[in-house]
Nucleic acid binder design. Structure first.
Length: 412
RNA sequence: GUGGCUAUAGUGUAGCGGCAGCACAAGAGAUUGUGGUUCUCUUAGUACGGGUUCGACCCCCGUUAGCCACCCCA
Protein backbone atom coordinates (compact mmCIF):
# COMPACT_ATOMS: atom_id res chain seq x y z
CA UNK A 1 0.00 0.00 0.00
CA UNK A 2 2.40 2.62 1.16
CA UNK A 3 5.66 2.94 -0.59
CA UNK A 4 8.48 3.71 1.80
CA UNK A 5 11.39 5.25 0.03
CA UNK A 6 14.78 4.30 1.30
CA UNK A 7 18.27 5.42 0.53
CA UNK A 8 19.94 3.85 -2.47
CA UNK A 9 22.07 0.87 -1.56
CA UNK A 10 25.53 1.92 -0.54
CA UNK A 11 24.75 5.58 -0.05
CA UNK A 12 24.43 7.09 3.36
CA UNK A 13 22.49 9.84 5.04
CA UNK A 14 24.67 11.74 7.43
CA UNK A 15 22.67 12.85 10.43
CA UNK A 16 23.31 16.21 12.04
CA UNK A 17 26.02 14.79 14.23
CA UNK A 18 27.87 13.00 11.43
CA UNK A 19 27.50 16.02 9.20
CA UNK A 20 29.04 18.16 11.88
CA UNK A 21 32.01 15.81 12.20
CA UNK A 22 32.19 15.59 8.42
CA UNK A 23 32.63 19.35 8.11
CA UNK A 24 35.02 19.37 11.00
CA UNK A 25 37.21 16.85 9.23
CA UNK A 26 37.11 18.93 6.06
CA UNK A 27 38.05 22.00 8.03
CA UNK A 28 41.02 20.32 9.68
CA UNK A 29 42.10 18.89 6.35
CA UNK A 30 41.92 22.27 4.62
CA UNK A 31 44.00 23.81 7.31
CA UNK A 32 46.64 21.07 7.03
CA UNK A 33 46.69 21.44 3.24
CA UNK A 34 47.23 25.13 3.65
CA UNK A 35 50.16 24.51 5.97
CA UNK A 36 51.71 22.19 3.38
CA UNK A 37 51.01 24.52 0.47
CA UNK A 38 48.32 22.58 -1.38
CA UNK A 39 45.50 24.34 -3.17
CA UNK A 40 41.96 23.14 -3.53
CA UNK A 41 40.36 22.23 -6.84
CA UNK A 42 36.78 21.21 -7.37
CA UNK A 43 36.29 18.96 -10.38
CA UNK A 44 33.11 17.41 -11.83
CA UNK A 45 31.61 14.15 -10.73
CA UNK A 46 31.03 13.12 -14.34
CA UNK A 47 33.93 12.06 -16.49
CA UNK A 48 34.55 10.10 -19.64
CA UNK A 49 34.84 6.39 -19.06
CA UNK A 50 38.01 5.99 -21.05
CA UNK A 51 39.90 8.20 -18.64
CA UNK A 52 39.66 5.57 -15.95
CA UNK A 53 40.09 2.59 -18.24
CA UNK A 54 43.36 4.09 -19.40
CA UNK A 55 44.42 5.66 -16.15
CA UNK A 56 43.36 3.24 -13.45
CA UNK A 57 43.80 0.18 -15.66
CA UNK A 58 41.51 -1.70 -17.99
CA UNK A 59 41.78 -4.99 -16.10
CA UNK A 60 41.44 -3.59 -12.57
CA UNK A 61 38.33 -4.49 -10.61
CA UNK A 62 37.32 -0.88 -10.43
CA UNK A 63 37.09 -0.53 -14.18
CA UNK A 64 35.89 -4.08 -14.78
CA UNK A 65 32.74 -3.94 -12.76
CA UNK A 66 32.50 -1.12 -10.31
CA UNK A 67 31.92 1.94 -12.41
CA UNK A 68 28.50 3.57 -12.51
CA UNK A 69 27.78 4.33 -16.13
CA UNK A 70 25.19 6.68 -17.50
CA UNK A 71 22.96 4.77 -19.83
CA UNK A 72 23.94 4.83 -23.46
CA UNK A 73 26.76 7.28 -22.97
CA UNK A 74 30.43 7.07 -22.39
CA UNK A 75 29.92 9.09 -19.24
CA UNK A 76 30.59 7.68 -15.79
CA UNK A 77 30.47 8.72 -12.17
CA UNK A 78 34.07 9.15 -11.15
CA UNK A 79 35.45 6.24 -9.10
CA UNK A 80 38.54 8.10 -7.92
CA UNK A 81 40.23 11.45 -8.23
CA UNK A 82 43.80 11.02 -9.38
CA UNK A 83 43.16 10.30 -13.05
CA UNK A 84 40.77 13.22 -13.08
CA UNK A 85 43.26 15.68 -11.65
CA UNK A 86 45.79 14.56 -14.22
CA UNK A 87 43.20 15.01 -16.96
CA UNK A 88 42.63 18.54 -15.73
CA UNK A 89 46.37 19.15 -15.66
CA UNK A 90 46.92 17.91 -19.18
CA UNK A 91 43.85 19.60 -20.59
CA UNK A 92 45.02 22.96 -19.31
CA UNK A 93 48.71 22.42 -20.05
CA UNK A 94 49.54 23.37 -16.51
CA UNK A 95 53.16 22.32 -16.96
CA UNK A 96 53.56 25.41 -19.10
CA UNK A 97 52.39 27.65 -16.29
CA UNK A 98 54.66 26.21 -13.66
CA UNK A 99 56.82 23.14 -13.27
CA UNK A 100 55.36 22.18 -9.93
CA UNK A 101 51.77 21.99 -8.73
CA UNK A 102 50.15 20.82 -5.53
CA UNK A 103 46.41 20.24 -5.44
CA UNK A 104 43.87 18.82 -3.07
CA UNK A 105 40.22 17.93 -3.48
CA UNK A 106 37.34 16.83 -1.29
CA UNK A 107 34.36 15.22 -2.89
CA UNK A 108 32.22 12.18 -3.58
CA UNK A 109 33.40 9.13 -5.49
CA UNK A 110 31.33 6.22 -6.77
CA UNK A 111 31.99 2.52 -7.02
CA UNK A 112 29.43 -0.18 -7.48
CA UNK A 113 30.69 -2.58 -4.83
CA UNK A 114 28.80 -4.70 -2.37
CA UNK A 115 28.36 -2.34 0.58
CA UNK A 116 29.87 -3.14 3.92
CA UNK A 117 31.02 -1.27 6.95
CA UNK A 118 33.58 1.22 5.67
CA UNK A 119 32.70 0.51 2.06
CA UNK A 120 30.06 2.46 0.23
CA UNK A 121 28.93 3.06 -3.30
CA UNK A 122 29.05 6.78 -2.76
CA UNK A 123 31.89 7.81 -0.50
CA UNK A 124 34.13 10.81 -0.08
CA UNK A 125 37.78 11.22 -0.73
CA UNK A 126 40.09 13.80 0.70
CA UNK A 127 42.83 13.59 -1.85
CA UNK A 128 46.05 15.32 -2.72
CA UNK A 129 48.29 15.28 -5.77
CA UNK A 130 51.76 16.78 -6.04
CA UNK A 131 52.81 17.01 -9.65
CA UNK A 132 56.16 17.83 -11.16
CA UNK A 133 58.86 16.44 -8.93
CA UNK A 134 60.57 13.11 -8.47
CA UNK A 135 62.25 14.13 -5.22
CA UNK A 136 62.04 11.51 -2.51
CA UNK A 137 61.52 14.35 -0.06
CA UNK A 138 58.24 15.01 -1.76
CA UNK A 139 57.24 11.40 -1.05
CA UNK A 140 57.95 12.06 2.59
CA UNK A 141 56.01 15.32 2.52
CA UNK A 142 52.99 13.57 1.09
CA UNK A 143 53.13 10.81 3.68
CA UNK A 144 53.53 13.31 6.50
CA UNK A 145 50.64 15.34 5.18
CA UNK A 146 48.34 12.33 5.14
CA UNK A 147 49.41 11.44 8.66
CA UNK A 148 48.95 14.99 9.85
CA UNK A 149 45.40 15.19 8.57
CA UNK A 150 44.37 11.96 10.21
CA UNK A 151 46.09 12.94 13.44
CA UNK A 152 44.59 16.45 13.44
CA UNK A 153 41.17 14.93 13.04
CA UNK A 154 41.75 12.90 16.17
CA UNK A 155 42.25 9.47 14.67
CA UNK A 156 44.35 7.36 16.97
CA UNK A 157 46.01 3.97 16.68
CA UNK A 158 46.93 4.30 13.05
CA UNK A 159 49.68 2.36 11.37
CA UNK A 160 51.74 3.43 8.39
CA UNK A 161 52.74 0.78 5.89
CA UNK A 162 55.14 1.51 3.08
CA UNK A 163 56.63 -0.28 0.13
CA UNK A 164 58.24 0.44 -3.19
CA UNK A 165 57.05 -1.09 -6.40
CA UNK A 166 60.00 0.25 -8.32
CA UNK A 167 59.97 2.15 -11.56
CA UNK A 168 57.93 1.07 -14.56
CA UNK A 169 60.77 -1.10 -15.79
CA UNK A 170 61.17 -2.82 -12.45
CA UNK A 171 57.46 -3.33 -12.24
CA UNK A 172 57.33 -4.97 -15.62
CA UNK A 173 60.34 -7.18 -14.98
CA UNK A 174 59.17 -8.12 -11.52
CA UNK A 175 55.72 -8.84 -12.81
CA UNK A 176 57.13 -11.12 -15.49
CA UNK A 177 59.36 -12.80 -12.99
CA UNK A 178 56.42 -13.55 -10.74
CA UNK A 179 54.37 -14.71 -13.66
CA UNK A 180 57.09 -17.13 -14.58
CA UNK A 181 57.89 -18.33 -11.09
CA UNK A 182 54.43 -18.84 -9.72
CA UNK A 183 52.84 -22.13 -10.52
CA UNK A 184 49.18 -21.47 -11.25
CA UNK A 185 48.29 -24.80 -9.71
CA UNK A 186 49.42 -23.57 -6.31
CA UNK A 187 47.20 -20.47 -6.38
CA UNK A 188 43.60 -19.77 -5.54
CA UNK A 189 41.09 -19.54 -8.36
CA UNK A 190 41.10 -15.76 -8.55
CA UNK A 191 44.87 -15.56 -8.57
CA UNK A 192 45.16 -18.08 -11.37
CA UNK A 193 43.65 -15.58 -13.76
CA UNK A 194 45.26 -12.65 -12.00
CA UNK A 195 48.72 -14.11 -12.39
CA UNK A 196 48.57 -13.48 -16.12
CA UNK A 197 47.28 -9.89 -16.19
CA UNK A 198 48.00 -8.45 -12.77
CA UNK A 199 50.70 -10.66 -11.38
CA UNK A 200 51.65 -8.22 -8.66
CA UNK A 201 48.23 -8.47 -7.12
CA UNK A 202 48.91 -12.08 -6.17
CA UNK A 203 51.28 -10.72 -3.55
CA UNK A 204 48.34 -9.05 -1.88
CA UNK A 205 46.12 -12.13 -1.75
CA UNK A 206 45.18 -13.33 1.70
CA UNK A 207 44.43 -16.93 0.82
CA UNK A 208 46.76 -19.32 2.62
CA UNK A 209 47.78 -21.13 -0.56
CA UNK A 210 48.76 -17.85 -2.22
CA UNK A 211 50.53 -16.55 0.86
CA UNK A 212 52.54 -19.73 0.90
CA UNK A 213 53.29 -19.59 -2.82
CA UNK A 214 54.49 -16.02 -2.44
CA UNK A 215 56.56 -16.88 0.58
CA UNK A 216 58.22 -19.70 -1.32
CA UNK A 217 59.41 -17.20 -3.90
CA UNK A 218 61.48 -15.65 -1.15
CA UNK A 219 61.19 -12.10 -2.39
CA UNK A 220 63.19 -9.24 -1.02
CA UNK A 221 63.61 -5.74 -2.29
CA UNK A 222 65.88 -7.25 -4.92
CA UNK A 223 63.30 -6.87 -7.64
CA UNK A 224 64.15 -3.19 -7.75
CA UNK A 225 66.91 -1.69 -9.82
CA UNK A 226 69.84 -0.08 -8.07
CA UNK A 227 68.40 3.43 -8.30
CA UNK A 228 64.99 2.47 -6.96
CA UNK A 229 66.51 0.53 -4.11
CA UNK A 230 68.54 3.58 -3.15
CA UNK A 231 65.47 5.73 -3.32
CA UNK A 232 63.49 3.46 -1.07
CA UNK A 233 66.36 3.29 1.38
CA UNK A 234 66.56 7.04 1.39
CA UNK A 235 62.84 7.30 1.97
CA UNK A 236 63.09 5.11 5.03
CA UNK A 237 66.03 7.01 6.41
CA UNK A 238 64.27 10.35 6.02
CA UNK A 239 61.21 8.93 7.74
CA UNK A 240 63.43 7.59 10.51
CA UNK A 241 65.07 10.97 10.95
CA UNK A 242 61.69 12.63 11.09
CA UNK A 243 60.59 10.19 13.76
CA UNK A 244 57.79 8.77 11.65
CA UNK A 245 56.94 5.22 12.60
CA UNK A 246 56.27 2.83 9.76
CA UNK A 247 56.30 -0.80 8.75
CA UNK A 248 57.87 -1.83 5.51
CA UNK A 249 55.55 -4.37 3.92
CA UNK A 250 57.00 -6.01 0.81
CA UNK A 251 53.63 -7.42 -0.18
CA UNK A 252 51.88 -4.05 -0.11
CA UNK A 253 50.61 -3.63 -3.64
CA UNK A 254 48.03 -1.09 -4.65
CA UNK A 255 45.22 -2.27 -6.86
CA UNK A 256 45.43 0.61 -9.27
CA UNK A 257 47.72 0.11 -12.23
CA UNK A 258 49.24 3.55 -12.23
CA UNK A 259 51.29 3.24 -9.07
CA UNK A 260 55.07 3.11 -9.27
CA UNK A 261 57.83 3.34 -6.69
CA UNK A 262 56.59 4.52 -3.30
CA UNK A 263 53.24 3.22 -2.13
CA UNK A 264 51.81 3.58 1.35
CA UNK A 265 48.74 2.85 3.39
CA UNK A 266 47.43 4.19 6.69
CA UNK A 267 45.35 1.66 8.55
CA UNK A 268 43.30 1.74 11.71
CA UNK A 269 42.36 -1.21 13.85
CA UNK A 270 38.95 0.33 14.46
CA UNK A 271 37.77 -0.31 10.94
CA UNK A 272 37.38 -4.05 10.72
CA UNK A 273 37.73 -5.59 7.32
CA UNK A 274 38.10 -2.36 5.40
CA UNK A 275 40.99 -1.14 7.47
CA UNK A 276 42.64 1.47 5.27
CA UNK A 277 41.85 5.03 6.32
CA UNK A 278 43.92 6.30 3.47
CA UNK A 279 46.46 5.25 0.92
CA UNK A 280 48.55 6.61 -1.86
CA UNK A 281 51.72 6.47 -3.80
CA UNK A 282 53.74 7.65 -6.70
CA UNK A 283 52.48 7.44 -10.26
CA UNK A 284 55.29 8.70 -12.42
CA UNK A 285 53.91 7.34 -15.68
CA UNK A 286 50.25 8.19 -15.44
CA UNK A 287 50.58 11.56 -17.07
CA UNK A 288 52.26 10.04 -20.11
CA UNK A 289 49.80 7.17 -20.24
CA UNK A 290 46.99 9.68 -20.46
CA UNK A 291 48.66 11.43 -23.38
CA UNK A 292 50.34 14.23 -21.48
CA UNK A 293 53.95 15.19 -20.95
CA UNK A 294 56.27 12.87 -19.05
CA UNK A 295 55.94 14.39 -15.60
CA UNK A 296 56.22 12.53 -12.29
CA UNK A 297 53.65 12.85 -9.53
CA UNK A 298 52.56 11.45 -6.21
CA UNK A 299 49.34 11.59 -4.24
CA UNK A 300 47.04 10.00 -1.73
CA UNK A 301 43.41 9.79 -0.75
CA UNK A 302 41.80 9.50 2.65
CA UNK A 303 38.36 7.93 2.99
CA UNK A 304 36.18 10.42 4.80
CA UNK A 305 33.58 7.90 5.92
CA UNK A 306 36.31 5.64 7.21
CA UNK A 307 37.78 8.52 9.18
CA UNK A 308 34.32 9.04 10.63
CA UNK A 309 34.18 5.40 11.71
CA UNK A 310 37.71 5.44 13.07
CA UNK A 311 36.83 8.47 15.17
CA UNK A 312 33.90 6.73 16.81
CA UNK A 313 31.33 8.88 18.54
CA UNK A 314 32.37 11.81 20.59
CA UNK A 315 30.34 14.52 22.17
CA UNK A 316 30.49 17.55 20.05
CA UNK A 317 27.39 19.58 20.50
CA UNK A 318 26.48 22.34 18.16
CA UNK A 319 24.22 24.67 20.02
CA UNK A 320 23.02 28.23 19.86
CA UNK A 321 24.14 30.61 22.58
CA UNK A 322 20.86 32.24 23.42
CA UNK A 323 17.24 31.20 23.80
CA UNK A 324 14.70 33.98 23.52
CA UNK A 325 11.72 33.03 25.67
CA UNK A 326 8.41 34.84 25.70
CA UNK A 327 5.74 34.66 28.36
CA UNK A 328 2.51 34.91 26.45
CA UNK A 329 0.99 36.09 23.21
CA UNK A 330 1.43 39.71 24.11
CA UNK A 331 5.21 39.51 24.27
CA UNK A 332 5.81 37.36 21.21
CA UNK A 333 6.11 40.31 18.86
CA UNK A 334 8.64 42.05 21.08
CA UNK A 335 10.48 38.78 21.59
CA UNK A 336 10.81 38.25 17.88
CA UNK A 337 12.08 41.78 17.50
CA UNK A 338 14.77 41.14 20.11
CA UNK A 339 15.66 37.84 18.43
CA UNK A 340 16.18 39.67 15.16
CA UNK A 341 18.29 42.32 16.79
CA UNK A 342 20.53 39.72 18.43
CA UNK A 343 20.97 37.99 15.11
CA UNK A 344 21.89 41.24 13.45
CA UNK A 345 24.70 41.40 16.00
CA UNK A 346 25.75 37.91 14.82
CA UNK A 347 24.70 36.19 18.00
CA UNK A 348 23.43 32.66 17.63
CA UNK A 349 19.95 32.41 19.05
CA UNK A 350 16.71 30.45 18.78
CA UNK A 351 13.07 31.13 19.47
CA UNK A 352 10.04 29.12 20.54
CA UNK A 353 7.31 29.32 17.95
CA UNK A 354 4.82 26.90 19.48
CA UNK A 355 3.50 29.14 22.26
CA UNK A 356 4.78 26.98 25.08
CA UNK A 357 4.81 27.87 28.74
CA UNK A 358 7.84 29.60 30.19
CA UNK A 359 8.63 26.44 32.10
CA UNK A 360 8.65 24.41 28.93
CA UNK A 361 10.84 26.95 27.20
CA UNK A 362 13.39 26.90 29.99
CA UNK A 363 13.37 23.13 29.98
CA UNK A 364 13.95 23.15 26.26
CA UNK A 365 16.82 25.62 26.57
CA UNK A 366 18.36 23.52 29.27
CA UNK A 367 18.05 20.35 27.28
CA UNK A 368 19.75 21.94 24.32
CA UNK A 369 22.57 23.12 26.55
CA UNK A 370 21.96 26.76 25.78
CA UNK A 371 23.62 29.01 28.30
CA UNK A 372 21.62 32.24 28.10
CA UNK A 373 17.90 32.73 28.13
CA UNK A 374 16.40 36.12 27.45
CA UNK A 375 12.98 36.21 29.09
CA UNK A 376 10.64 38.73 27.55
CA UNK A 377 7.92 39.57 30.08
CA UNK A 378 5.23 42.20 30.22
CA UNK A 379 6.27 43.79 33.50
CA UNK A 380 9.86 44.30 32.42
CA UNK A 381 8.85 45.52 28.98
CA UNK A 382 7.02 48.40 30.60
CA UNK A 383 10.39 49.80 31.64
CA UNK A 384 12.13 48.72 28.42
CA UNK A 385 13.86 45.77 30.04
CA UNK A 386 14.07 41.99 29.76
CA UNK A 387 15.46 39.33 32.03
CA UNK A 388 18.82 37.83 31.13
CA UNK A 389 19.23 34.44 32.72
CA UNK A 390 22.52 32.53 32.91
CA UNK A 391 21.51 28.88 32.99
CA UNK A 392 24.93 27.61 34.01
CA UNK A 393 25.17 29.86 37.02
CA UNK A 394 21.45 29.92 37.78
CA UNK A 395 21.42 33.69 38.12
CA UNK A 396 19.34 36.27 36.35
CA UNK A 397 19.37 40.03 36.05
CA UNK A 398 17.09 42.65 34.63
CA UNK A 399 18.72 44.53 31.76
CA UNK A 400 17.61 47.33 29.46
CA UNK A 401 16.93 46.02 25.96
CA UNK A 402 19.37 48.55 24.55
CA UNK A 403 22.14 47.17 26.76
CA UNK A 404 21.31 43.51 26.18
CA UNK A 405 23.95 42.75 23.56
CA UNK A 406 26.67 44.50 25.53
CA UNK A 407 25.64 42.69 28.66
CA UNK A 408 25.72 39.28 26.99
CA UNK A 409 29.12 39.92 25.49
CA UNK A 410 30.41 41.07 28.87
CA UNK A 411 29.54 37.91 30.77
CA UNK A 412 30.05 35.30 28.10
C1' G B 1 30.57 -9.70 -7.73
C1' U B 2 30.22 -14.68 -4.22
C1' G B 3 28.54 -16.84 0.42
C1' G B 4 26.01 -15.99 5.06
C1' C B 5 23.17 -13.24 8.90
C1' U B 6 19.59 -9.48 10.27
C1' A B 7 15.03 -6.10 10.12
C1' U B 8 9.62 -5.04 16.35
C1' A B 9 7.65 2.94 18.65
C1' G B 10 12.59 8.21 17.46
C1' U B 11 16.64 4.90 19.81
C1' G B 12 17.90 0.30 22.37
C1' U B 13 15.53 -4.11 23.23
C1' A B 14 11.60 -8.42 24.98
C1' G B 15 7.89 -11.83 23.29
C1' C B 16 4.41 -15.55 21.14
C1' G B 17 1.04 -19.46 15.24
C1' G B 18 -4.33 -16.46 18.91
C1' C B 19 -5.38 -8.63 22.25
C1' A B 20 2.80 -6.62 21.02
C1' G B 21 5.49 -5.40 26.25
C1' C B 22 9.88 -2.78 28.71
C1' A B 23 13.64 1.16 29.09
C1' C B 24 15.34 5.65 27.35
C1' A B 25 13.96 9.69 24.27
C1' A B 26 9.84 13.03 22.98
C1' G B 27 5.22 15.99 24.46
C1' A B 28 1.70 17.71 28.49
C1' G B 29 0.83 18.45 33.61
C1' A B 30 1.78 18.54 39.43
C1' U B 31 -2.51 26.13 41.38
C1' U B 32 -1.55 31.68 38.12
C1' G B 33 5.74 34.37 34.85
C1' U B 34 11.37 30.28 35.91
C1' G B 35 15.21 24.70 33.91
C1' G B 36 18.30 19.93 36.08
C1' U B 37 15.45 15.45 40.79
C1' U B 38 10.68 13.09 41.60
C1' C B 39 5.58 11.78 40.30
C1' U B 40 1.30 11.38 36.77
C1' C B 41 -0.48 11.18 31.96
C1' U B 42 0.11 11.10 26.47
C1' U B 43 2.19 10.01 21.70
C1' A B 44 4.32 6.24 18.84
C1' G B 45 5.95 0.02 16.34
C1' U B 46 6.10 -5.62 13.85
C1' A B 47 10.58 -2.49 6.70
C1' C B 48 7.67 -3.41 1.92
C1' G B 49 4.81 -7.03 -1.26
C1' G B 50 2.92 -11.80 -1.83
C1' G B 51 1.86 -16.96 -0.05
C1' U B 52 0.54 -21.05 3.69
C1' U B 53 -3.28 -20.91 7.75
C1' C B 54 -9.69 -20.38 10.69
C1' G B 55 -5.89 -16.96 12.32
C1' A B 56 1.03 -14.71 10.69
C1' C B 57 5.22 -10.01 14.00
C1' C B 58 6.26 -15.39 14.21
C1' C B 59 6.42 -20.33 8.87
C1' C B 60 7.64 -19.86 3.25
C1' C B 61 8.87 -16.77 -1.23
C1' G B 62 10.17 -12.07 -3.35
C1' U B 63 11.72 -6.78 -2.75
C1' U B 64 14.40 -3.12 -0.13
C1' A B 65 18.06 -1.72 3.33
C1' G B 66 21.92 -2.91 6.81
C1' C B 67 25.75 -6.08 8.76
C1' C B 68 29.75 -10.08 8.48
C1' A B 69 33.33 -12.92 5.66
C1' C B 70 35.41 -13.33 0.83
C1' C B 71 36.71 -10.00 -2.87
C1' C B 72 38.21 -5.15 -3.51
C1' C B 73 39.79 -0.57 -1.84
C1' A B 74 39.78 4.93 0.59
Amino acid sequence: MKKIYSNIRGTSDFDTFDSFIFSRICKKARSAFNIFGYQEIILPILEEKGLFAKGVGQVTDIVQGQIFELKGKDIVLRPEGTAQVIRYYIQNSLHKKSDFHKFFYIGPMFRRERPQKGRFRQFHHIGAEAIGSDSIYLDVEVIMLALKISAECGIKDTELKINSLGCADDKRKFSEYIKKSLKPATLCAACKTRSTHQALRVLDCKRPECIKAVKDLNLGQNSLCQACQEQFKKLRSILDDAGVKYTSVPTLVRGLDYYTNTVFEITSSKLGSQDAVGAGGRYNNLMKTLGGPDIPAIGFALGLERMLIALGSKDFKQKPDIFVATIDKTTVAKGFEILTRLREADLSCVFEYQQKTLKAQLRSAQKKGIRFVVIVGEDELKEGSVILKDMDKSVQTKVKIDNLILEIEKIS
